[in-house]
Amino acid sequence: MYEFKYHRPATVRQAANLLVKNEDAKVIAGGHTLVPVMKQRLASPPHLVDLSHIEGLDTIEMKGRSLVIGATAKHAAVATSAVVGEAIPALAELAGGIGDPAVRHKGTIGGSLANNDPTADYPAAVLALGATIVTNKRRLKAEEFFQGLFSTALENDEIITKVMFPLPKKAAYIKFRNQASRYALVGVFVAKRPSDVRVAVTGAGSDGVFRATAFEEALKKRFSHKVLDGVSASADGLNSDLHGSAEYRAHLIGVLTRRAVEAATAK
């Protein structure tokens, strides 16, 4: 790992000022993506701005009809939160399935979203539930936030402060883990929302998380796995690598969507 200067701001404003002053600075919270990448020297930021000591940035609460999760809320906290378990149990389950227990004690929702790893779990939930990502500057809808592999709408000095999830009627997340890395080879988050149905897919797309609209259209008519007979995902634009071909991933999208709908309707 190359040298860097470590900063520990007490407020989001201080953190943002540090980012303005130091153009190549990186934000760190749990560090469970950034530290490994820095160890491999794939990233070498001269400044690290640590958000993990900003008070109140990890709050989990209901605000009106939305579940609001602070950016530095750890996966373990989301997984075990009674508020999340009551509001969106599928989200608590998703958080409880990220990495392993030690990783969940450090990794944060804001970090996962800002990184936008194409195999991460949270992006699928955020896109399917139609969450709003709140930063120190503005509010971004999920579909404008994610902009392809490891890329988001965040500007250099922009910091995620919280994520607001509208409550779905039903939801479930099912992932098929890569047997070696344990990341999602394919993960599907299905949400029956008051106005529509959304199916978001992670792990499969060569451009990151995306919505499987053919499945959404079918499920809008009736939210049951039975309407999905004959509906399939196209292999176009899906990843093909030694872990699985694009056709295999397309097949998994269909299988996992059915399972997720079954899981959501069984709740």
Binding site: Y6, R8, G31, H32, P36, K39, H105, K106
Partner: peptide
Amino acid sequence: CDTSQCGACVVHLDGKAVKSCTTLAVM
């Protein structure tokens, strides 16, 4: 492994298990 996977480096930080190979001492 030095890559956050094997858990040989697990210690407790404020009472919770974490991987000390993926945690900076300054943090």
